[in-house]
Amino acid sequence: MVLDEIKILLEKYDNGETTLLEEQQLKDYFSQETVAPELEVYQPLFAYFSQSQKEQFTKDVPLKPEKTFTMYKWISVAAIAVLMFGITIFNPFERAERTYAQLTEQEKMDYDNAMLAFNLLSSNFKKGTDNMSAMTKVSEKLNEGQRKLALLSEFDNATDRVFKY
């Protein structure tokens, strides 16, 4: 491009009157290796514009898909509701209570045997506790002995004092 034309364009450029197309022409001109020496001032300016045009935003933006999230939330709420409903209506933990008279023969026998075994266990436990009461007596005696020992140490103190004088 002719130098004069560039100069006219620069004049327009400084006055903010250039079109985008004309500004592109200027950019192209100043991106050359060599420009007219009197116009060298402009070179870094246009070089800077072209350079900063290339800068990019590289960071990732976490776009949360909120819609699907709320959907999952409601699904889980519904699931819990259904579960609760199921438990209250057909309670798998509930056991029908029956009286002894309603049991079958086999069940009655099992029940009696179980009761017998439990009774045996409990009577043995009783024996164990009886023995334990003997232990408490022993511990009482021990306590008494300790008290006696304290008395003895006091007597010791007294004798010490006597020996000192």
Binding site: Y13, D14, N15, G16, E17, E40, V41, Y42, P44, L45
Partner: peptide, 19 residues
Amino acid sequence: RVALSRARKTIREKLTKTH
């Protein structure tokens, strides 16, 4: 346009000075 012209002229003046 006025603001742009002002900015461009300021830059040119300062660049000329340093140049």
